[in-house]
């Protein structure tokens, strides 16, 4: 009867592996907050908002312009990507000829797989010059929004597709039996039924947009200043870390970890909201 011993050994091995995932999360949180503790203690949380400027070498730590940059770029990208992503899913499920569908899925999958540095590079060499012709300097909030929208679009498209796909077939049958047109079915029956899944997709895309570094770093211009229009350059929190980490002294480094902590907090808050929204949608049927 060799099983019980072998099975127990297997279970404990598996448990050990599973625990390590939990350990990594704890380590991430512990190290990011541990490294930001000195700055939070010495500078205090208020001065990150009230200092006259961001000059860490001279002891000024105002993060508001970068925070604004992150929020503006992400919000703009989502406003653009959400309708396009949902329309792409509707195209796939209800409009595309059957022969085209698998190709379309592959295309969206490929878009999702293109590295952010390639999107950034493409934005830098083709989008930025175009915007520059419209309104210099070209590296701008607008460039960031466009590139980022393109990057998060596949996330929204794929999750909306899954949400539309899971709409029960009998809804479609009864819509057809009631004589609803194609768009009438989509807008009246399918979208309301799938809104939970679509919202989850948008929330995930939002997290991805806030956390994106390379693409925005490459096309946004990275000037630490409140932007006054779409054509002004901006710097996001993520780009700030990537740009300054290499030469940051100890207080400066700690301040950068604070912005990392802030990113974590934003993403966690967003996840909390979307989970609550999803539950509400599910509860309301």
């Amino acid at each position: 009867m060799p099983h019980p011993g072998r099975d127990r050994a297997l279970l404990w091995t598996l448990r050990l592996f599973a625990v390590s995932s939990v350990a990594i999360v704890l380590l991430v949180v512990a190290f990011v907050s541990g490294e930001s503790a000195p700055a939070l203690a010495e500078v205090g949380p208020v001065r990150f908002f009230s200092d006259p400027s961001w000059h860490p070498a001279s002891g000024f730590f105002n993060m508001v312009p970068m925070l604004a940059g992150t929020v503006l770029v992400s919000a703009g990208a989502l406003l653009l990507a959400a309708p396009l992503g949902v329309l792409s899913a509707i195209f796939l499920q209800f409009y595309a000829p059957p022969a085209l569908r698998s190709y379309w899925r592959n295309l969206i999958g490929l878009l999702a797989g293109i590295p952010s540095v390639v999107y950034g590079f493409w934005g830098l060499v083709s989008l930025v010059p175009l915007i520059n012709r419209l309104h210099p300097p070209g590296q701008s909030l607008l460039a960031g929004i466009l590139v980022l929208a393109l990057m998060v679009l596949p996330t929204i498209a794929l999750l909306s597709d899954a949400a539309l796909e899971s709409v029960p077939a009998h809804y479609l049958r009864s819509a057809a039996a009631l004589g609803l047109s194609r768009w009438g079915t989509v807008s009246g029956v399918v979208l309301p039924a799938a809104r939970g899944g679509i919202l989850t997709g948008v929330a995930l895309a939002a997290a991805r947009a806030v956390g994106e570094t390379m693409a925005v770093l490459m096309v946004c211009g990275n000037v630490v200043r409140m932007p006054e229009g779409l054509f002004d350059p901006v710097r996001t929190l993520t780009a700030n870390i990537a740009l300054e980490m290499a030469y940051a002294g100890s207080a400066h480094r700690s301040a950068l970890f604070v912005s990392g902590l802030a990113l974590l907090a934003i993403v966690a808050l967003g996840a909390g909201f979307s989970e609550a929204a999803r539950r509400k949608v599910v509860a309301n049927g």
Partner: peptide
């Protein structure tokens, strides 16, 4: 226990890559 592990993974999946960079550098 399963719930704890699953939540941890959801958190991990949402962490921005630059924060992983910070963590990797520190740890």
């Amino acid at each position: 226990f399963g719930r704890v592990v699953r939540t941890s993974l959801d958190v991990l999946a949402g962490v921005p890559s630059i924060v992983f960079g910070l963590f990797g550098n520190a740890f």
